[in-house]
Structures are given as structure tokens and as C-alpha cells.
Write a protein that binds this DNA or RNA. Structure first.
Lengths: 344, 344
DNA sequence: TTGAAAGCGCTACCAT
DNA sequence: ATGGTAGCGCTTTCAA
């Protein structure tokens, strides 16, 4: 075979090109196959100890690092689990969940990759993700439709799991039913004798995913009763809260479910600054059961959320990867339990 | 050339194998080259309109998605910017920073990938990252040493940027000097006449990266004065705070820098519950300038942090990628400015 | 305007 | 025990 001479590599200019397994093989005086066997500890083949050492030595010397793309291209699959990076301001609950999940998937030898998609949606985003050929895709929120799921599956994803308000055709679903949260909150206020209930809806973008169902749940809780639910748009800043507090009297409300503990703190402070008594003039309940609720005076009632356990979700992913044909699982997670303190 | 017949593909069993550009070519009745030209809008070559349509049609029909690994293998480079996923509980400041950065890098046509490394450190982590052959690596914290940087560069990373307390040989550095934060806080307390200053150090894991320099900075601020700095370990939970507050008198302190606003809130509440007056009996200052500080009574003094702008960092990355040979840049970011409110 | 083919780095099969 | 080599999916040069 004729070796076509490469153009003289500008070794002096280029920052020493990246070493490949062929370079390791050359330096160790063995074949690329042997290098692969040694570095992957292939058990089907036995390599003599001296050879192993030579290979390892050469690899270290060159600073050789295998090329993941080449490897998974050859293998025909990867162990990458892909999640879109969250585009909304994430709270402590969610960060902890992500952390746990990464740890648990890591234990199962998967690699979690959070992919920053800059505002593409559904199909378009799904196609971006599919290009990476992940073995599984975890999608929080509702940025994915049935067509997106289809794109991912056709591209080889063996499991697609959504974490959100509703299930998507073809994908496993962890149903995080935020309606329950609003329902529990409003129900609690009703049970404590309140009849004119305000529900804070954050003005911030990206939160309607959670706030809308919470509002809906609250409405549902008082349907067919004499109580009313009033939507209260509120941005997370002091002035807006002060304005809302100033017209509190004219709203004629006696209670408020404040979306979550942070908005509750914001609103409660504004109400107190207006001279209103909590819970006398207005009962307040938050959600998420953050530490700060316990530190407020009066102590903030809240809805405690049970996030899905990272371990369980990791197990679900692993199951789905092993048996991609299985019927999609549906799990309702996010248990909502009212924690009654002093503000309601 | 002899076509070796493939074994009969079990099309009925397998979940219809993933379509490749060859499949598209076959369906469209053209060559793979043509498919590539069409789908990449290659300008160097002109493809007739009817052919283009046929190719697009075929691609859509098959649900074809290009294989990123194969593409970047062939291209010899990627536009992936890799960051390790944070392993500590991230606050709103950091999330916003990440979000901005992703957006800004997206605008420059980079793809941000947060890679979940489960507690591997330095070299080992660096090798994992290097396997992905990212064009640039952004490392927050101090999980990377000079050898790690070297591994990354040898594997083809054209830019390595650290965000942390100190610069690393060979890498660009965004110096987030948390000492300044502690210094500003302690200096402020000193200027307001306080002489026995406590500094809260969170017991939580992963935070010492920030807390240690903040403490050091506080010590430095009162060196060569008559003031003292006392380290106050504190876990983020009520009981610990109550215990600390209970022995407050015996500590003989008149002020405290509480690591950040959240710990400040925790401690302030405990002190108030002990009947201590703020700032009378104890001046309190936090850091991070979170919303909650403004909502406390008395309003919380704090140290406002100016995080690096996502756009600037994206620009730095882009510059470094274009000119990998350039000398590492050092930038001190994280301006610290005391915001004096009522608690100090 | 289109096609044939080489080759990116790697692993696994089949020889030796 | 080790080596030769095909081929994963893609792009791109060269030839037609």
C-alpha cells in the first residue's frame, strides 16, 4: 500500500497536536488494538504485564485522553443522560434535586449533561438534544411535545422522561402536580374560616409553569363553596408588593396564598408595613417550606413539597434504558402537605 | 466494488434503527455528499432546487438528525464549552450568572454543557472533561490545578478559564476575591465603632471555598487594630443558631459578619428571640444583597457583590478560542460594596 | 451539478 | 499474547 506523505506537520507552530491511541501504540511499540485492550481493561483478552506497563507508561507520557465522541461513535451508544439546563431561576429545592439525581445516575455509571438550549422550543430543542445521541433525556417543565419525544426516540434515546404538570405521549412521566399545592393551600385557608382568598401569581417569566396550576388548584379547592379566589399578579420587588398592600383594603380579601415562601415573605412584609395584622387581617400561606418561613414572625404557614427522590428517578431511567419497549410509567410525585404555623 | 450483503436487518424487531445521512441519500436518490451539502447549506457548491427539496423531504420523512459526535470527529473540533455542574447549593446570584453566560455564549454559537462530575477532583475530573474535547472549559471554584489545566490543553481545549479565588498556571482567571467581601464587611463594622467582631463560617460542605477567604479578609481588615475577629461555625438550621445566640453574652461580641444574607437572617432571628437588640447589642451584616435582607426588620446591612457579566466572560472565552496562544488574562471581578441599612 | 472515497479516533472481530 | 483491519456517521477534496 502506498503511503501518501502528509504535508509536513508544522509541529513547531501547532500546539503539539492531540495524541491519539495510535501515538500511544507507536511509543509503546505495540498495535492500537493492544492499547485499546490495555486501557479498557478488556477482560476477554489477556495482555502480558510488561506490555501493560509499557502502554500505560506511554499513555501517561503523552497525556493521552481517549476521545469520547470516537468511542461512542464506534460503540453505537453512549451513557449520557441529557437534561436541558433550567431557564428559570431555580430554588434550593430544585438544585438539591438535580444534585441528588446526578449523584444517583453517576452511581449507575451514567453521565449527566445539562445542555444549555437558548430558548428553542419543542421540536427544535429536541433536535438539538438528539444530535448528542443521549441514551436518555430528562425534561423538566413542559417544553416537550409528542413530536419532540418522537424525534428523540427515533434518534436512539432509549428513555424520555418528563417532569412536569402533564404526561406526554410516548414518554415516561413524573407528574409534578402543582395543582395539588394550590388546592392544599386554599383548602387550608378555607378550613380556617377564610372566604375571600387572594392567590399571588408571579410576574416573572418562566414561572407560569408552576404558578398557573397552583392558581387552578386553588380555584378548584373552593369551587361550589361560598369562597372566592382572586388572582394577584406580583413581581418580585418591594415596590410592587407595597402597591398591592396599599390597595389591600379595597380588595376585600382576608387571606392569601402567596405562590411560595419567598413571595409570601415579600407580601407579608408589605402588609405588615401597611399596619395590617397577620393572620388577623390577612392569613398568609406560602409554599416550598423554605427555611426562611420558620424565621419570619409570625412564623409562615406553608405547603411542604416532597420532591421526587434522585435515587428513584435514576432507577426509573435505568429501568427504561434496559427495557425501552416497556409501557411508559406514570408517577405522581410532589406530595403536598400543609405545614400550619402562625401566619394562617 | 463488491457489495458485501449485510445480514438481514431485523427491521421488525429492532425499534427501527436510527437513520443516517446514507439513508436520507438513498431515499432521495442522491449521494451522501449531496445530502451533506444540502443540509449544511454549503455555499461552496450549488445544488439544484429540485434536489434540495428531495433531500429535505427525505430527511424530514425519516426524522433524520445529524450525529454530533460523528460530525465533530470529522471536523476535528467542536464548539462545546464545558462547565462542571456546581456541587454546592447554588444561590440566585450564581444561577443568574450561569443563565446569562449560557445565553451570551449561545449568541456566539457555542454550546454550553454542564457536566456532572460526581466528586472526582483535579486531574481525574479534568480527564473526564477532556474526553469530550470541549473547545473551552470554564471551571468555577478551585477544583483544578496546573496539571488539570495541562491535561485539558493537551486534549485540545483552546481556552481554560477558572472562576475562583486564585489564578492557576496556564489558565485564564476570573479572580473572584472573596477576601474583599470579608474585608469590606469587617471594615464597615469597625468603622461603626465595633471592636469584637464575630464571623459566621457555614458548617455546610462545599461552602468553605467562599467562607474561608471571607474570614481571612475580615481578619485582615482588623489586623493592627484593637479589634478582634472570632470565628463562629454555624450550620444552616434553627437549633444551631439558637445555641449560638444563647451563648452570645459569654462570647462578648458586639458585631457579626454572617457569611451571607441567609445566614444573617438565621442568626439575627435567633439573637432577636434571645431578646438582643439589633444593632444595639449586636450589629449584623450579611453579604450577597439578596432581596430578603431588605425585608427584614431591622433592614439588613449587606455586602453587594458584582458578579462578572455573562457577556464579558463569553467574550473572553471567544477571544481565547480565537487566539489560544495569547498570555492568560487575569481579571479581578466581584466588586464588593457595603450597603448600609439598619442592622449595623 | 453530483458522486466516489478517504479518513477523523476508536473498538472488536478474526488471524496469527 | 498480539496485530491487522473493518467500520461507526460524517464532511470534503477531487474527479467526472
Amino acid at each position: 500500500m502506498v503511503q501518501i506523505p502528509k504535508p509536513p506537520a508544522p509541529e513547531s507552530l501547532a500546539p503539539r497536536s492531540v495524541p491519539t491511541s495510535a501515538d500511544v501504540a507507536r511509543l509503546a511499540g505495540v498495535s492500537r488494538a493492544t492499547v485499546s485492550y490495555v486501557l479498557n481493561n478488556t477482560s476477554a483478552v489477556r495482555i502480558s504485564e510488561p506490555t501493560r506497563r509499557r502502554v500505560h507508561q506511554a499513555a501517561r507520557e503523552l497525556g493521552y485522553v481517549p476521545h469520547a465522541a470516537a468511542r461512542s461513535l464506534r460503540a453505537g451508544h453512549s451513557r449520557t443522560v441529557l437534561m436541558p439546563a433550567p431557564s428559570f431561576p431555580v430554588g434550593p429545592l430544585y438544585s438539591r434535586f438535580i444534585g441528588e439525581l446526578q449523584w444517583a445516575l453517576g452511581r449507575l455509571d451514567y453521565t449527566v449533561v445539562q445542555y444549555g438550549t437558548v430558548g428553542r422550543h419543542d421540536d427544535e430543542a429536541a433536535r438539538c438534544w438528539a444530535e448528542l445521541r443521549p441514551v436518555a433525556v430528562l425534561v423538566p417543565g413542559s417544553g416537550l411535545g409528542p413530536r419532540g419525544v418522537d424525534v428523540l426516540k427515533r434518534s436512539g434515546a432509549r428513555a424520555v422522561v418528563t417532569l412536569g404538570p402533564e404526561a406526554v405521549e410516548g414518554a415516561h412521566a413524573l407528574l409534578m402536580d402543582h395543582e395539588t399545592v394550590g388546592h392544599a393551600a386554599a383548602r387550608h385557608l378555607y378550613d380556617r374560616g377564610r372566604r375571600r382568598i387572594g392567590v399571588v401569581v408571579p410576574a416573572e417569566n418562566g414561572l407560569e409553569l408552576f404558578s398557573a396550576p397552583r392558581l387552578t388548584g386553588a380555584r378548584r379547592a373552593v369551587r361550589d363553596t361560598d369562597a372566592t379566589v382572586t388572582e394577584l399578579p406580583l413581581a418580585y420587588e418591594e415596590r410592587g408588593a407595597a402597591r398591592l398592600a396599599a390597595r389591600w383594603g379595597s380588595l376585600g380579601l382576608d387571606a392569601v396564598f402567596a405562590y411560595n415562601d419567598e413571595y409570601a415573605m415579600l407580601l407579608m412584609r408589605a402588609l405588615q408595613d401597611e399596619g395590617l395584622g397577620i393572620p388577623g387581617d390577612a392569613a398568609v400561606i406560602g409554599a416550598d417550606d423554605l427555611m426562611l418561613g420558620r424565621l419570619l414572625r409570625p412564623r409562615l404557614s406553608t405547603v411542604h413539597l416532597e420532591m421526587p427522590s434522585g435515587r428513584d428517578l435514576a432507577a426509573l431511567v435505568d429501568r427504561a434504558v434496559h427495557d425501552p419497549g416497556a409501557a411508559p410509567e406514570r408517577h405522581t410525585v410532589l406530595g403536598a402537605a400543609v405545614v400550619h404555623r402562625e401566619s394562617s
